Amino acid sequence: MQYRRIALRVQYLGSAFHGWQRQAAHRSVQGVLEEAIASRAGHKVILHGAGRTDAGVHAAGQMAHFDTTSTIRPSDWSRVLNACLPEDVAVLASAEVPDSWHARFSATRRRYRYLILNRERPDVFWRLFSWHVRWPLQVERMSEALNSLLGEHSLEAFRCTGSKRAHSTVQVQEVLCQRLGEMVSIEVQASGFLYRMMRLLVGSLQVVGRGELSPEGFVRLWQQNDWSQMRTRYSAPPQGLCLTDVGYAADPFGQLFAHSPPFWVLPLAAPPPTLAPLAHSFG
């Protein structure tokens, strides 16, 4: 019996999921996708993801793979699955990959973006996709602190207990912290991410932005893993976080893959028209 390995690029809204990983008693992205694939393949499958997002975390470019004996053409899997998936999950592309290719272990980079709605009043339309922080944030200080993470370091300070990873060394490849009108966007690209690393990192950066921790204090915090510099260990809520991309040495989809991610994950040159200048928000 000949198996084919199929790679998928997946997009989902995390709001109604208890995370990526399959769970017996809760709705998960992996579980929903495995059920849909099995219904079309005619046999059970195990879907391997590039990363395990937490409950409430979104993805615009999650990667996954499964093995199947189905005769469905590899490029048709995206169309076949989208016909039976719920509205909060979509398969953007599908392709056959070599048996040696693995969605998680073959990845060379992952990129996350976190959005903070930084104004006095909340916004019901952004509630599912951002963290509402009502006090003004000094983005320049946050950017200075974030830049200190570039390179390969032990980031144990930004790992929650319960992680099964053997070490805390991470190669941080790119970082970006910028203001887009009333939105503060924090992006990190790294070789991998520790358990809840991004949420702990953003939680600490907003303390820097509030002026309660200096950029130098932030550096001491993560280099010495010394949380005594802060009154509490802040973890940003999940809804502002989105896995925007997973990269490989070669794109499994070649030139056939092209998609337009949601506007909140695009590298916006200017704030969306619905976002007023920040100066109008705290008056």
Rank of each mutant, 00 (worst) to 15 (best):
Leu200Ile: 04
Val124Lys: 03
Trp227Pro: 03
Arg220Tyr: 02
Asp226Val: 03
Ala50Lys: 01
Ala250Gly: 05
Leu115Val: 01
Gln206Met: 09
Gln30Gly: 12
Val124Arg: 06
Leu149Arg: 12
Arg165Ser: 15
Arg179Glu: 11
Glu87Val: 06
Trp264Glu: 14
Arg4Ala: 01
Ala258Met: 02
Glu174Ala: 13
Pro237Ser: 09
Leu146Ala: 07
Arg159His: 15
Ser100Gly: 02
Gly56Met: 10
Leu85Lys: 01
Gln62Gly: 12
Phe17Val: 02
Val91Gly: 01
Arg110Gln: 12
Pro273Lys: 14
Tyr112Ala: 05
Ala24Asp: 14
Phe218Ser: 05
Pro98Lys: 03
Gly14Leu: 03
Val29Phe: 15
Met1Asn: 00
Cys177Gln: 10
Leu180Lys: 11
Ala7Pro: 07
Val202Tyr: 08
Trp131Phe: 12
Val219Phe: 01
Thr108Gln: 14
Ser191Arg: 12
Ala107Gly: 04
Pro271Phe: 09
Glu174Leu: 10
His26Lys: 11
Glu34Asn: 02
Val45Asn: 11
Ala249Lys: 14
Leu180Asp: 13
Ile116His: 14
Leu176Arg: 14
Met1Val: 00
Tyr3Trp: 01
Gly49Asn: 10
Tyr234Asp: 15
Asp67Arg: 15
His43Leu: 06
Ser28Cys: 09
Leu128Pro: 02
Phe17Asn: 04
Leu243Lys: 08
Ala276Phe: 07
Pro267Trp: 04
Leu213Pro: 11
Leu221Gln: 04
Met230Glu: 10
Ser204Lys: 09
Gly49Thr: 10
Leu275Thr: 07
Arg199Ala: 14
Gly254Lys: 04
Pro98Val: 05
Pro122Trp: 01
Ala269Pro: 13
Gln21Met: 07
Glu182Pro: 08
Arg22Ser: 11
Leu180Phe: 03
Glu96Tyr: 03
Val10Ile: 09
Asn82Ala: 02
Val246Ser: 07
Ser191Ile: 08
Met197Ser: 08
Leu268Cys: 13
Arg5Gln: 03
Leu256Ala: 13
Pro237Gly: 08
Pro122Met: 00
Ala50Met: 12
Val246Phe: 03
Met142Tyr: 05
Gln178Phe: 06
Asp88Tyr: 02
Gln21Val: 06
Arg113Gln: 13
Gln30Thr: 07
Asp54Thr: 02
Ala145Tyr: 05
Leu137Thr: 01
Leu243Tyr: 11
Phe158Asn: 12
Leu128Trp: 00
Trp77Glu: 01
Leu176Glu: 15
His65Ser: 15
Val202Lys: 12
Phe282Gly: 15
Ser191Gly: 15
Tyr195Met: 13
Val172Leu: 07
Glu140Gly: 13
Val45Arg: 14
Phe129His: 01
Gln173Leu: 11
Gln239Ile: 00
His18Asn: 10
Ser168Arg: 10
Gln30Ser: 04
Ala95Cys: 05
Ala83Met: 03
Gln224Thr: 04
Ala236Ile: 10
Glu96Trp: 04
